[in-house]
């Protein structure tokens, strides 16, 4: 079962839209659909849940007279997503989880949040040394463990 890639990207752009400052695209435009498709490909039940959920979303759009989800106005897209959230909560919460996994691990997002694109290793980060006089009060209380 393959997912409707175009529809998936449109939905993802609604779930995580572009950042208002324009520095980050929405999840669909960023390519998070690939992460969702990869997950769906690995587990048949997940693939089925997502395929059926997307089809149900398109059906909601068609029932309102549009040709499909993509033909809806921005406000109507949000309304359709709210409807599917009620009707198929498992579908939407699963898709959201995968969207967050893909979006917040993506290099451009991590780079924008951190201010640089380098991986944590091998340079790491500096942590300044501590003033351990903070512990004076703890030391003053004395022994805490039970002797036995």
């Amino acid at each position: 079962m393959t997912l409707n890639t175009q529809l998936l990207a449109m939905v993802l752009d609604e779930l995580i839209p572009s950042r208002p400052d324009g520095l980050l695209p929405g999840a669909g435009s960023l390519g998070v659909g690939a992460v969702v498709e990869h997950a769906a490909g690995g587990t048949p039940e997940l693939g089925q849940l997502l395929t059926q959920g997307l089809a149900a979303l398109d059906d909601i759009a068609r029932r309102s007279g549009a040709e499909g989800f993509g033909a809806l106005s921005p406000t109507a897209r949000v309304a359709a997503l709210r409807d599917i959230e009620q009707a198929e909560p498992m579908f939407l919460s699963t898709l959201l989880m995968l969207a967050y996994v893909g979006y917040y691990s993506a290099e451009p997002v991590v780079a924008a949040l951190k201010g640089n694109a380098r991986p944590p290793h091998p340079l790491g980060y500096d942590l300044e040394s501590d003033d351990l006089s903070l512990l004076d009060a703890v030391r003053a209380r004395g022994k805490l463990y039970r002797e036995c």
Partner: peptide, 22 residues
């Protein structure tokens, strides 16, 4: 970290989808 933080906040209802997300 970003991904884990988002996944923790999601079921708590602290990270909505849509316009209020960012």
């Amino acid at each position: 970290h970003p991904m884990f933080g988002a996944l923790i906040a999601l079921p708590q209802g602290r990270l909505p989808w849509g316009a209020a997300h960012h």
